[in-house]
Amino acid sequence: MADSETTIAYFTVVEDQRTGWTGGLLLLNSGGRPLEFQCTLPVRPSRAHEILFGPTLRDHLIGEIIGPLLVKKCRTPIGLLCVDQPEALVISQSVSFPIGIVVEAAELEEGPITDDTLIGSGEVTLAGSRLRVPMEQVEAVAAMAKRLVDLPDAIEPFDRIREAIKEAQSQIARAQKPVIVPSAEAA
């Protein structure tokens, strides 16, 4: 089993108009090799959910439903959780390990991240990228980042998650055999 002090998890959610919201969590060792991968089945909110949650639906799905579910399913202890969506930072309220947003990955996904979005956070360098974490966790995360010197990239794991989700969805689609309904003439 991996030492949680040297494990780093990445979490993101992919929204697809056709399939819904699918979350993925990839846990890596200090060198960037995968230890564990978890993903959800697509979540499709009902029209009633869309109406009732309104503009907070995205926050709810990413930070309160999909993220906590994947963290709970993870069997390997997590040392640090990196996210690329600000809505995922709320997961920190229910876990004991630090959570940070990889600024460059978030900006690729979400557009410019302002300091207003990350009030009360400090910056740590992780594998050449900026990681914003709560001020009270800056020292602990900086010490952890020093142990993660072999991590080749802090942004690329999010791409792996998106590709793995895409592959899982295509496998599900291939496994579903088309239903052939006999025509009335064949009866």
Rank of each mutant, 00 (worst) to 15 (best):
V124S: 00
L57W: 06
R44N: 11
L69P: 02
R47S: 08
D159W: 04
M135N: 10
L27Q: 10
L108N: 03
M135T: 00
I161A: 05
A184N: 07
T19N: 05
P112I: 08
A168F: 04
I165M: 05
Q17R: 13
V103C: 05
D16S: 08
S129T: 10
P134A: 04
N29S: 09
G128N: 07
A106D: 01
P134V: 01
A2S: 13
L131Y: 11
V149F: 00
P134M: 01
I180H: 15
Q38Y: 11
D16V: 02
Q176I: 15
R147C: 06
I91Y: 11
V133T: 01
T22S: 11
P42N: 01
E109H: 11
D153E: 06
G111W: 08
S30Q: 13
L35R: 08
R130L: 10
G23V: 12
L81F: 13
T22G: 09
L81M: 08
Q93I: 02
E123V: 00
S121Q: 14
R58T: 15
I65N: 05
Q176P: 01
R162S: 14
P68D: 09
V71G: 10
K177S: 15
V103K: 11
F158P: 11
L35A: 04
L118D: 02
H60Y: 14
P182V: 03
E109R: 15
K146W: 07
P112H: 05
L27M: 05
E167D: 15
D116R: 12
V141C: 02
I91K: 01
T117E: 09
S121L: 00
F97S: 02
I91V: 15
Q38P: 09
E36C: 03
E109L: 09
E156F: 13
Q137A: 06
S121G: 00
V179T: 15
R33W: 03
A173I: 12
C39R: 12
T19W: 07
T117R: 10
I161F: 03
V181I: 15
E36M: 05
T6Q: 07
E15N: 13
E104V: 03
T7R: 08
V13I: 14
E167C: 09
V71L: 07
